[in-house]
């Protein structure tokens, strides 16, 4: 079986531009077009959050699609399920806006759409080849890879740094 791709954060590369947030909101709009999306009701919402560790250290936070996702088990309406490609997704039609998922998500990445009274969260852009946030990131701080490829890249980078250090 093909390994599932996930969204990984390379936080050292994040510039804090919030482009991922806009792209995410647009990708989850009806029109898929920023100019029209801004006027839609309910207002499209981003599911990625550029938070700050300190004023100068931004970091994008998004749903981890946890194994044994607490939100999925906590949901009292059966609105959260795991797709075949391992994304944990919220079915807006079934969501009743009780916010139990918000109460149990340890990452704080489930949003509450007050206008629509629906919880929303990253769905890894089920209808796109690559999640919109990843496409939008100008510095590639967000990558869409398999765990294997992501850790391979990390190792390669570490090795490069090591060899540069030795060459000095």
């Amino acid at each position: 079986m093909d390994q599932i791709k996930e969204i990984f954060v390379r936080k050292d590369l994040c510039m804090g531009c919030h482009s991922c947030e806009l792209a995410c909101a647009v990708a989850h709009s009806a029109s898929k077009n920023i100019y029209e999306a801004m006027g839609e009701h309910p207002m499209p919402k981003s599911r990625v959050y550029v938070e700050t560790v300190s004023a100068s250290v931004p970091v994008p936070i998004l749903c981890r699609h946890c194994e044994d996702a607490p939100c999925m088990h906590a949901c009292i309406a059966g609105a959260i399920h795991r797709t075949a490609d391992q994304a944990v997704v919220t079915d807006a039609d079934k969501c009743i806006g009780c916010w139990t998922c918000v109460m149990v998500c340890p990452y704080g990445v489930i949003g509450r759409h007050l206008e629509a009274r629906k919880a929303y969260r990253c769905d890894r852009c089920q209808d796109r080849d690559q999640p919109a946030c990843v496409s939008a990131c100008p510095t590639k701080a967000l990558v869409y890879q398999t765990v294997t490829d992501f850790s391979k890249d990390l190792r390669r980078k570490a090795a490069e740094e090591l060899s540069r250090g030795e060459g000095r």
């Binding site: 531009c17 919030h18 482009s19 806009l22 792209a23 647009v26 920023i34 100019y35 801004m38 919109a132 496409s135 939008a136 100008p138």
Partner: peptide, 9 residues
């Protein structure tokens, strides 16, 4: 692409 939505708007 995609270009910055903040600048765009």
């Amino acid at each position: 692409l995609p270009q910055c939505g903040f600048g765009d708007t």
